[in-house]
């Protein structure tokens, strides 16, 4: 053994460490900047949030350790439950973006003159900033000057104050948020439809499949990767729905449109906030909820990979 391996080792040594390990090291080198930033700006702050949530701290003075007090306070904080319930409403209704996006994508997936223009028009709301979408809808809903009340007036409905009424405000904001989200899902499905195998469609057609059956048994299974991404993106988008709430209502009226992300911001960083420990506790709860979803989807992905 020694006699054989020795000459080989000397030739290896002569190539140097870099030459020998180039293939293995290169991916890590390329990943390094990303890993460093991810660790410093994402992973580390997660642990910091956990840490801060056990303190009472105004961000300036000394932090006082308070154990689980912040979490105990959360348990009987009405605003926390309102935010949690709104988060769930967001989650459920936001998922409507997926079937809506699919419908529009199927509709737009045709060879017609000027289709590119229609596609870009449908995609338009995703391109403009969320802040602009929010402002447009604020004016749209405005009971004094907005178009909404005259519009429903045509159908005989009484005027509404959508963003000022605690019963309707969250639905009003979700509707505004759905507009760009549907466009996003539509794009995901349009690219997915490009990859649908025409031979399978042809074969299905010969077997007499059409309409909904064709969609359900032939097209949708092939769109599974697109559906998967759409669900992940929509769920996470719903959970971190911050910008719309901030722009349209700042969580009002009297906190009825708050979501956890906005409540966290309000408690820790807004004009009347700076209760860092309490804000961190909310962040931890939000993180744990997100973790459930992320873990579920990662597990499903892993299972499918293994089955494949």
């Amino acid at each position: 053994m020694a006699q054989i391996s020795e000459p080989i080792q000397t030739t290896r040594d002569s190539r140097g460490w870099w030459a020998r390990n180039q293939m293995r090291a290169a991916p890590w080198l390329f990943l390094a900047p990303g890993i460093v930033f991810f660790a410093v700006y994402v992973v580390l702050p997660i642990f910091q949030s956990f840490h801060i949530s056990f303190y009472r701290w105004d961000g300036l003075g000394e932090a006082t350790p308070v154990g689980l007090d912040n979490y105990r306070q959360l348990l009987d904080d009405r605003a926390f439950y309102v935010s949690l319930r709104n988060n769930l409403t967001w989650l459920l209704l936001y998922l409507l973006a997926i079937p809506a996006g699919l419908m529009i994508a199927l509709f737009l997936n045709q060879q017609i003159r000027g289709m590119r223009l229609y596609k870009s028009l449908f995609f338009f709301p995703f391109v403009i900033s969320q802040v602009v979408v929010g402002l447009v809808f604020v004016w749209f809903y405005n009971p004094a000057i907005g178009l909404w009340n005259p519009l429903i007036g045509l159908f005989g409905f009484a005027p509404m104050n959508i963003l000022g009424n605690p019963q309707t405000v969250t639905y009003g904001i979700i509707a505004a948020g759905l507009w760009p989200q549907i466009a996003y899902c539509m794009i995901l499905y349009l690219t997915g439809l490009n990859a649908v195998d025409p031979e399978q469609v042809e074969a299905a057609r010969l077997d007499g499949a059409k309409g909904l059956k064709m969609l359900w048994y032939v097209i949708l299974p092939q769109l599974r990767p697109a559906t998967f991404i759409a669900v992940v993106v929509t769920v996470i988008g719903a959970l971190r729905s911050f910008d719309m709430v901030s722009v349209m209502t700042r969580g009002g009226p009297f906190g009825s449109s708050r979501v956890l992300a906005y409540y966290m911001f309000e408690v820790s960083l807004s004009e009347y906030g700076f209760r860092m420990g309490y804000g961190a506790a909310i962040a931890v709860v939000l993180f744990l909820i997100m973790l459930v979803y992320i873990a579920f989807f990662l597990w499903r992905m892993w299972r499918e990979e293994r089955e494949a």
């Binding site: 809903y141 405005n142 009971p143 004094a144 104050n161 963003l163 000022g164 009424n165 009002g252 009226p253």
Partner: peptide
């Protein structure tokens, strides 16, 4: 005025 929650202070000026 009706629906004060729909306006900020400037929007109530008109």
């Amino acid at each position: 005025i009706d629906n004060p929650t729909a306006y900020d202070w400037q929007e109530a000026l008109p």
